[in-house]
Design a binder for these strands. Structure first.
Ligand SMILES: Nc1ccn([C@H]2C[C@H](O)[C@@H](COP(=O)(O)OP(=O)(O)OP(=O)(O)O)O2)c(=O)n1
Ligand SMILES: [Mg+2]
Ligand SMILES: [Mg+2]
Length: 1255
DNA sequence: ATCCTCCCCTAC
DNA sequence: TAAGGTAGGGGAGGAT
């Protein structure tokens, strides 16, 4: 407000003469006059263009005037900044330029002549007398080139030159050969909005048609009901003229400072790669090598090579940088916003024009926030087209693909297979074709390129092409699609312009990405008095003027509305969703457009028959929460009503730092893998240092080729169809040390037991970040602390029972980790082995053992013997621990899979520095003890131990003595709750959730409807079971046919049974809780693991899982028993349990028995049983499978579908972990049987989308 | 109840 | 050929 007065003054002052109202009117009249001449127009190439000719030009000014007017443009005799869109000049004194005109479009006359000869309006950018780049250079240079890129400035200049020459060539070429498509950026605007413009203009003031005003005005007027169109135009123009000077100055100033600091340093080192700078194709390095070359295995340059070419890496890096930049702006708390002066001036003008007084609405009442979302239009394409005006108006995509979407299929790959898998997951990479057709193999026949299109022009979008789509399918959708290469440096430059421009108005920004941000305009608007749409018009114009790229903006009272508005505004437009109009506006918005609703959720909603926000509004909150979870449900509920409380996040604190690569991973040898881990760890280390953080938790994320996926992927060097796994470990102290991270990561890799040749993706993430502060503490995590712990452990252990001392302090994590002090791996191993062998219990070792094993593995990696090892880490591990294995490889598995190695082992020094073999353990810090550190310390300890502490024999003995008790405890605990992980758990169905979904009929009970919205194929309830069954069978794969048949039989039987004797079991729906069976439960959980054999549920031996027919007998019997309530449960129980079940069984029988699995009734117990079973049996026993199947069948008959769902989920989760095909097949078998039965009985199936990939 | 791990999902 | 990264929200299941 205060500034308003000032604005007036300025108006008067302005030199262009534009300031006078009279001048404005005059210009307007002139414009109209010229328009009359339209009748004789040769074309409308220059529609919206208004030129001013400065000085001597090659085609004379008169000539230019004629050319422009004849082709729909305007000519200004005076330099009315607000009116003139382009200044035509052949040369211009620097002095002149520097001041007022820097931000004007100063263009060479060739722009006019070329455009005419081309028949289209070409982008003025290549014809600029002074390129935007050169003007901005100082600022940008500081920013982008921070470090490694040595030559930023130099390069940029060079680059500019190069690009120009290229452009020229191109231009010429196009002229000769093709007709230029349409327009440059400004033209685009016109073309896109042109019609609308007309309307807007009708208002009256619009007389000025410069493209600028057009762009902004029309949009504003159309879309926004509130703002005044007139204001927009003028605002825009004025802002332009006024701003330029100031903007510039401040630009350079603030830029260098702010950016250099915050942004620049964050930059990704890989940008520099010369190759990428000019995409043209320096790729020499990357290219031309054998496929193996790319493999990261050996390449020392792999990381930089990959990251330098990864658009997503750049995107992420930039996003983080801008967030940090904004955080910094906020912290500076500056109130210097040079851009606002322009707004104030504009506002003053508008007041003058309208005759309104200040007290205007803008001032008083803006009770609610005004949030703006701004996003560059097809960003990469827009930037890329600056150098390729000839492609404007054409469908264009940015991609690495150099051919036209064709590529030689990769020999061992199976594109069809992958396509099917994608279909299951529903990705859009293949385009609509993919989504619509079950499998469209044909699309691959002609266009096979799997290069992704980062961004495509709106022309391409009309044909169905989307960002992220593969080139092949895109070509199929749009054969004329043109491609342009990446130009990462340029994206950075334009991005900088965007951020700097916005930051000149306000720092209330939330960086979303390099081409997008959220801005809280509330303060800015009240301060300057401009209306939201005026501001936006001015801003967009300014950005366009500076960058040559268009942006679209959305305005609303919250983030959600602002984003939706932007979507509505694109391309090159703006839109304000006024509060009173929210419901009307949002009613028809597709739910898919809601932020947070992606492919998956959209499908779930779609299955619920919810397509639009209006549809969604009719779904009760409770249903949404049941279906999607508490928060997600609430969020959906609010979003579809236009409600969004999310604040703009201007300060950003990093919560994690990671580096991952899921491309080009093909290891042949372990040492390659180890090297990669070291390199990646180094990368993480560098990133941590950049943000000055250290972290306590290291997480390893892997993508592992799915067993049924071909070794060669359809996409060159892609990851193909994979399972994803992750494992984390908590360190005692935060670290950013590369070697520590590498060690821990390798340990985790070991724990995951993956064959390195099947690795397809690797990521290392560090979380629980802390400020870098403590200098010394850093390294410690691995080494120092470990040592401390170690020492303590030793001491303590002798004195105290192993684990207690440790336990006491914190319990932060797994208590289990006993403080045990096992110094060496060897010892531990021995110990473990002994115990295992002797006792025959594998369970006993689980928790603690893990570390040791890992450590061994670790040794292997680092040790010289590496070569010995088989490719698979797990194998090597196994080899070492044969003895252990004998007891059951379950043991190994369990150990390995234990969450991070929490082990009891005392933390040992990881760092080499500590290596002294004798290293006596330093006293552990009390803080560290097992608890808090447990996982870490243990892991670390292990590593260090192995490496550096060769032989503490003494320790070992002690350890052995002490460990047992602890181990036992741990084991017991662990047994109870092993953590299952499912790579794909889905969830959807959960128990009641589905039931909750009102959309589906619940055949059975209310609770468990099987289908969740997720299901792709909504299942229609089929009344007649028999028919259904048949269908099911038919539909199923041949493999399963047999099984299904048998299953079918069972079903029938069961059904019969059911009829005969309805289950009167306990609770109508779920029997789980009956007290009777508690016994079994307890047992199961508590007992440590059974020996593998014991675990097997049934005594039967031998049949391979697959085919054995289901024994009628067994099934029947079990069923009968259950039904009748008499029988002891499954046959297997008896066998099973020696330990567990046996006891329980007897009791069970009584009266209402509950359906159980070897005595386990509660889901918890069932899970534990399943875990043990899976862990103990490398290969599933057919009998066991049958037992499970029978159990599930009973549950189904009991209508306890909820439990069925839970059991299946648990199985899926555990088996996923195993990563074992045989088990997978068994699960498939079980699931098929179950689904068939359910279908026959209820007419629908469980929604098991979560295990779809498995099936 | 709350935290932790391991996932999935989403966004650019 | 192709460069399928990365941060954060959130949910399920488990431990406490
Ligand atoms: N799957 C994707 C999505 C985006 N991007 C990159 C290229 C885009 O140009 C940029 C910005 O993403 P936007 O979602 O803003 O998409 P565009 O700017 O391309 O188009 P528009 O914003 O006009 O819809 O991010 C990418 O590489 N891969
Ligand atoms: Mg964009
Ligand atoms: Mg964007």
């Amino acid at each position: 407000m205060a500034s308003r007065g000032r604005g007036k003054d300025k108006l008067k002052k302005s030199e262009d003469g534009w300031e006078e109202w009279g001048g404005y009117m005059k210009a307007k009249q002139e414009k109209l006059r010229q328009q009359y001449a339209k009748n004789g127009l040769k074309s409308e190439i220059f529609k919206g263009i208004s030129i001013y000719v400065n000085g001597y030009t090659k085609p004379s000014s008169d000539e230019l005037k004629r050319m422009v007017i004849e082709n729909g443009g305007m000519y200004q005799h005076y330099l009315y900044k607000l009116q003139v869109t382009h200044i035509i000049a052949t040369s211009m004194a620097n002095s002149k330029i520097s001041k007022d005109l820097k931000h004007m479009k100063i263009v060479k006359p060739e722009w006019i002549t070329d455009s005419i000869s081309c028949g289209k309006l070409l982008s003025y950018i290549p014809y600029q007398l002074f390129t935007a780049q050169s003007r901005l250079q100082s600022g940008i240079g500081g920013f982008s080139v921070p470090k490694s890129s040595i030559s930023t400035e130099e390069d940029s200049e060079v680059k500019t030159t190069v690009s120009k020459s290229q452009i020229n060539q191109y231009r010429n070429f196009t002229e000769d050969v093709e007709v230029c498509p349409d327009s440059d950026l400004s033209d685009e605007d016109d073309s896109i909005l042109g019609n609308q413009f007309e309307e807007g203009e009708s208002d009256g003031n619009l007389s000025d048609n410069n493209n600028l005003s057009e762009m902004f005005v029309r949009r504003g007027s159309e879309e926004n009901g509130s703002a005044k169109d007139n204001n927009h135009e003028q605002a825009v123009k004025r802002s332009l003229s006024l701003k330029k000077d100031r903007i510039k100055s401040q630009y350079s100033e603030s830029r260098s400072l702010d950016q250099s600091n915050s942004v620049s340093n964050l930059e990704s080192p890989y940008k520099l790669d010369p190759s990428k700078a000019l995409n043209v194709s320096n790729t020499g390095t990357s290219k031309g090598h054998s496929p193996a070359k790319m493999a990261k295995a050996g390449d020392s340059n792999f990381l930089s090579e990959f990251y330098g070419n990864s658009r997503l890496h750049h995107l992420s890096t930039w996003g983080a940088e801008w967030k940090a930049y904004v955080t910094k702006l906020q912290s500076e708390n500056s109130d210097n916003f040079p851009g606002r002066d322009k707004l104030r001036e504009f506002h003053q003008e508008s007041l003058l024009r309208t005759g309104e007084s200040e007290s205007h609405a803008s001032v008083r009442g803006r009770p609610e926030r005004v949030i703006m979302h701004i996003d560059m239009d097809c960003f990469f394409v827009s930037v890329g087209l600056l150098d390729r005006p000839d492609l404007r108006g054409k469908p264009v995509g940015v991609t690495h693909s150099k051919n036209k979407g064709m590529s030689a299929p990769i020999p061992g790959s199976d594109p069809h297979f992958e396509m099917q898998q994608w279909h299951l997951k529903g990705k859009k990479k293949l385009g609509d074709v993919y989504e619509k057709l079950p499998v469209d193999l044909q699309s691959f026949d002609t266009f096979t390129s799997m290069a992704e299109i980062a961004s495509c022009s709106y022309e391409a979008r009309k044909a169905g092409v989307k960002n992220g789509m593969f080139m092949g399918p895109a070509k199929k959708l749009c054969p004329e699609l043109q491609t342009i290469p990446y130009n990462f440096e340029k994206y950075q430059e334009i991005s900088t312009i965007l951020y700097d421009t916005v930051a000149s108005y306000t720092h209330d920004i939330e960086a979303v990405s390099c081409d997008e941000m959220l801005v809280d305009c509330t303060d800015l608007l009240s301060d300057t008095g401009v209306t939201p749409l005026d501001f936006t018009s001015i801003l967009r114009q300014e950005i366009y003027t500076k960058s040559g790229c268009t942006a679209s903006t959305g305005l609303g009272s919250n983030v959600l509305l602002a984003k939706l508005a932007t979507r509505n505004a694109k391309p090159n437009g703006q839109y304000y969703v006024e509060s009173y109009d929210v419901l009307e506006f949002i009613k028809d918005v597709s739910v898919r457009d809601l932020p947070g609703v992606g492919w998956s959720m959209n499908r779930k909603l779609s299955n619920m028959n919810v397509k639009t926000c209006g549809d969604l509004q009719s779904v009760p909150l409770s249903t949404l929460q049941k279906e999607f979870g508490s928060k997600t449900g609430q969020s959906l509920y609010n979003s579809c009503r236009g409600i969004d409380d999310r604040p703009i996040k201007m300060e950003n604190e990093r919560k994690s730092v990671s580096a991952e690569i899921n491309y080009g991973i093909r290891f042949q040898k372990e040492h390659e893998c180890v090297k990669f881990f070291n390199d990646l760890s180094e990368e993480v280390h560098n990133r941590l240092q950049k943000v000055k953080r250290k972290g306590k938790v290291v997480t390893l994320k892997l993508k592992v080729r799915r067993e049924d996926a071909p070794k060669e992927t359809a996409k060159f060097m892609g990851h193909g169809i994979c399972n994803s796994l992750s494992r984390s470990i908590t360190l005692p102290l935060a670290t950013d040390d590369a070697s520590c991270i590498a060690k821990e990561s390798l340990m985790l890799l070991h724990a995951l037991k993956v064959d390195v040749t099947d690795l397809r993706g690797i990521g290392i993430q560090v979380t629980r970040l802390e400020a870098e502060a403590g200098i010394k503490s850093d390294k410690s995590a691995c080494g120092h602390q470990s040592i401390l712990n170690f020492t303590v452990a030793q001491k303590t252990s002798p004195d105290k029972p192993a684990g207690k001392p440790i336990q006491s302090p914190n319990k932060s994590r797994s208590v289990k980790t006993l403080p045990t002090m096992v110094p060496k791996m060897n010892d531990i191993d021995v110990f473990l082995q002994r115990s295992s062998v002797q006792k025959g219990e594998r369970g006993a070792f689980k928790g603690d053992n893990v570390p040791e094993i890992d450590s061994n593995a670790y040794k292997d990696f680092y040790g010289e013997d590496t070569e010995k090892r088989s490719s698979s880490l797990s194998q090597s591990l196994v080899e070492k621990h044969r003895i252990t294995l004998m007891s059951g490889h379950t043991l190994v598995d369990e150990l390995s899979r234990r969450k991070t190695a929490k082990g009891f082992l005392p933390p040992l020094p990881t760092l080499p520095s500590f290596t002294s073999p004798e290293s006596t353990p330093s006293p552990p810090e009390s803080g560290f003890l097992p608890f808090s550190t447990r996982s870490n310390s243990s892991a670390t300890a292990i590593c260090s131990t192995l490496d550096f502490l060769p032989s503490p024999s003494q320790i070992d003995q002690e350890v052995l003595k002490e460990l047992p008790p602890d181990i036992r405890r741990q084991i017991e605990q662990e047994i109870k709750s092993k953590q299952p992980d499912t790579s794909k758990s889905s969830t959807i169905i959960h128990d009641s959730q589905e039931a909750g979904c009102s959309y589906w009929p619940d055949p059975v009970t209310t609770d468990m409807i099987t289908r969740s919205p997720e299901d792709d194929t909504p299942i229609v309830a089929l009344p007649s079971p028999s028919q259904i069954d048949l269908d099911c069978l038919n539909a199923l794969p041949k493999e399963l046919q047999d099984e299904l048949k048998s299953a079918y039989k069972h079903q029938t039987t069961q059904a019969d049974m059911q009829h005969k004797s309805p289950t009167k079991l306990a609770s109508p729906s779920k029997s789980k809780k009956s007290p009777l069976f508690k016994v079994p439960k307890g047992r199961a959980t508590k007992k440590r693991k059974l020996s593998p054999k014991k675990l097997s549920f049934s005594n039967k031996k031998s049949k391979s899982i697959e085919q054995k027919e289901v024994d009628h007998d067994t099934v029947l019997i079990s069923i009968e028993d259950d039904v009748s309530g008499i029988g002891p449960r499954l046959t297997e129980n008896a066998s099973f349990d020696n330990e567990n079940v046996a006891e329980a069984q007897p009791e069970t029988k009584p009266v209402a028995e509950e359906i159980n699995l070897c005595g386990a009734v509660h889901i918890k117990d069932v899970r534990n049983l399943l875990k043990e079973w899976l862990n103990s049996c490398p290969v599933p026993q057919e009998e066991d499978v049958e037992v499970i199947t029978n159990y599930l069948s009973q549950l189904i008959l009991d209508k306890n579908l909820e439990l069925v769902d839970l059991v299946l989920k648990a199985l899926n989760r555990y088996i996923h972990k195993l990563n074992n095909n045989v088990w997978r097949n068994s699960l498939r078998h079980i699931v098929n049987n179950t689904q068939c039965l359910i279908h026959s009985l209820h007419g629908s199936q469980l929604n098991i989308q979560y295990m779809k990939t498995l099936l």
